[in-house]
Design a protein around this nucleic acid. Sequence first.
DNA 1: CTGTTAGCGCCTTCAC
DNA 2: GTGAAGGCGCTAACAG
Lengths: 332, 332
Amino acid sequence: MATIYKVSELAGVSLATVSRVINKSGNVTPKTRQKVLAAIAELGYRPNSMAQSLASKRSNSVGVLIPELYGPFFGIMLSSVESELHKAGKRTIVTAGHSDEAIERDCIEFLLGSTCDALILHVQAVSDDYLLEISEGPVPVVLLNRHVPKLADRCISLDNEHGGYVATRTLLERGHEKLAYISGPSWKMDSFKRLAGHRRALEEFGLDFDERLAFEGDFEEASGREGVIHLLKQKLQFTGLVCANDEMAAGAMQGARAHGLSIPGDLSVVGYDDVAFTRYLNPQLSSVNCRIEEMGQMAARAVLKHAYDTKDLVIQNTFKPHVMLRASIGSR
Amino acid sequence: MATIYKVSELAGVSLATVSRVINKSGNVTPKTRQKVLAAIAELGYRPNSMAQSLASKRSNSVGVLIPELYGPFFGIMLSSVESELHKAGKRTIVTAGHSDEAIERDCIEFLLGSTCDALILHVQAVSDDYLLEISEGPVPVVLLNRHVPKLADRCISLDNEHGGYVATRTLLERGHEKLAYISGPSWKMDSFKRLAGHRRALEEFGLDFDERLAFEGDFEEASGREGVIHLLKQKLQFTGLVCANDEMAAGAMQGARAHGLSIPGDLSVVGYDDVAFTRYLNPQLSSVNCRIEEMGQMAARAVLKHAYDTKDLVIQNTFKPHVMLRASIGSR
DNA sequence: CTGTTAGCGCCTTCAC
DNA sequence: GTGAAGGCGCTAACAG
């Protein structure tokens, strides 16, 4: 493998000059530059990034921790992060935290040990305190889809309360007055916020929230199915159903249909996340769009700004979701 | 940041000894090891991986190039690769090639310039010759989902011909004698092979392949819809439809239904890839399962074997797909 | 089993 | 504008 030394030799210049043309730093005569470039080409020289990193204390790579590397939501997120990073010439190192505290911490250590220039963390199990702690370390951290008050300017997150609100409001505006709700695990902040938004919308319409029409699922399809069945058993009559994510909504639609209900004839359903498969469902599912791509892109930009001092980057810290209206919602 | 030098000082040993305990290389007295470990803990020392890499000429990171970072197929693939690599303590650097030759080459250069210890490439546009060329370079390359004869032992691929064969056979065995086929772009080897398998199955059952009952799509949902409509117009009667991937199958199901056909009553459909959303379709789609996870895992293992000399690893180079039977197929 | 000694390949002040 | 020299933090022979 050719080294910078060989190049300087062939070009008849010093090693420092070669370094200058590679990094476009300092001024070099066009003529010398040409000589160097020619030598580089001839030798097929490629700078050794490990050496560059060691000397410059910059690895040009950022670590990304995300619950899973697959799935409609995380996939898009990861994709948009990488794409933005790649454009800026930065490498993306990925790991999956599996929503498990021990694994998440392990991955963070792993990434920190990889001398990443920055970290983009989409974590769910780890505590705010822990995040604060590592944020005080030497490597900049950006939090995706999580809001830690003290780290507000490092968080790129979604206004989940608003999401729950608009989802519900969409139903209310169409004349539905009896609504049921299938939530995610209540210990997850996201679930909690979405439900809060739901309640706010009800309140705004002068309706009471009925505990009996709420079911706590686990964000998995099966729990959606289970959920409607449970809700239907209450014999309380409802014409609208808000689900805290699309998987559960899909399960709920199946369950409702199995009970002889037609959608949206008897029951209007709205999901959350607006994930790709919503349009494969029958009828197509209305859902709360989370602007996943924009958030991922913004997280990458935040890194560019905070870790690589890229100027002129305006960071939008919170995103407001909106409802994508499809066939699963009818009017009363 | 504490360096190895500080640690050796505090522990009262030489720098080499510290290196030994870090890397578990060479033998160190339990007692000295303890001293070193204590010093490490006290200083919160963490080895600088860039320096380690530079000195050892090993970055412990492998580059992964895949068409997209999202989507049911690639997501799972990436996920299984990363998971296996992570277990072995290796970092995963990802990039997306977008099935574009220029981008794919660019990414490969990018990864090569990142001093990865090995590359896992899931490329579609780049030529065999180019792959051969880089395979002769210093960094080991493993090809995913692609078969380059001269690189056979470095390829982890699916027997697509067999996939097309079993998909078709599944229909034939259930009494369908008039079959239509919606293929992917014919220049893609995968499409070509799948279609070849389809023809072989027909032949085996003494049936002729009718060009008029074949439509070339582009692997996107819309082309599936378009495809059935085109096929239906031929007025040639067919009761079974094989699609070269699930997206097109989903589109085809919609299109067929729009034409008043019931599935599987009037038309049995089988897809390819057995991607997650197959079960959200109505009826659930039968599909050719590609063992994506196993292939990803195997690719990672191949890297462990070829780039990190992990012994005792048996590499399975080709995988045979099988059909997952669901409601979209009926008998005649 | 442990210490000494060279580099690994490059960046970055400094002089010239 | 260009060159010389020191050092980034660590690994890997060699000795001892």
